[in-house]
């Protein structure tokens, strides 16, 4: 069975993955104008600077949308079905896509408060996960 998809980080994206490995969600920030962007990319779309630094996300999030995966598009995820993929708004102005933990989709509404957590998969890759805030 093919394993789960693994990232092949570029120099621009490696700090994101290194951050996750330490249990921190790192977001790329333009060193010139301060705009935070996600997913990581070489250029700031506002001021076109290629200088960037990284800031740690607050860990807060709210529900924007979601889906529940039922069909096994990939054999390595079959055992986890059904799983909930949440699209979450971050107060930093970008969004995060991550699996929901410790709740079902019935609990979700746009704007529902979430907390970002971290979890290593069987291949040792640390990924963000989302939980209901206050739960």
């Amino acid at each position: 069975m093919p394993g789960k998809p693994m990232p092949d980080p570029s120099p621009e994206t490696r700090p994101y993955w290194d951050g996750l490995a330490e249990g921190r969600l790192m977001l790329q920030r333009c060193a010139e104008c301060g705009r935070i962007r996600h997913y990581p990319q070489p250029m700031c779309p506002s001021c076109h600077s290629m200088a960037a630094d990284w800031v740690e996300a607050s860990g807060e999030a709210t529900v924007h949308s979601w889906t529940v995966a039922h069909h096994p598009f990939h054999a390595a995820f079959r055992a986890e079905l059904p799983y909930v993929l949440v699209t979450a708004d971050l107060p930093e102005g970008v969004r995060l896509l991550a699996q929901l933990r410790d709740a079902t989709a019935e609990a979700l509404r746009p704007g529902r408060k979430l907390r970002i957590g971290f979890e290593a998969n069987e291949a040792g890759l640390t990924l963000p996960v989302l939980r209901l805030a206050g739960a």
Binding site: M6, P7, W66, A69
Partner: peptide, 18 residues
């Protein structure tokens, strides 16, 4: 592919459902 597939978003149906 880099940022969503590892979490299990793998196919058009899963991209468009949200």
């Amino acid at each position: 592919g880099e940022f969503e597939a590892p979490s299990g978003a793998l196919a058009p149906a899963q991209y468009y459902a949200p």
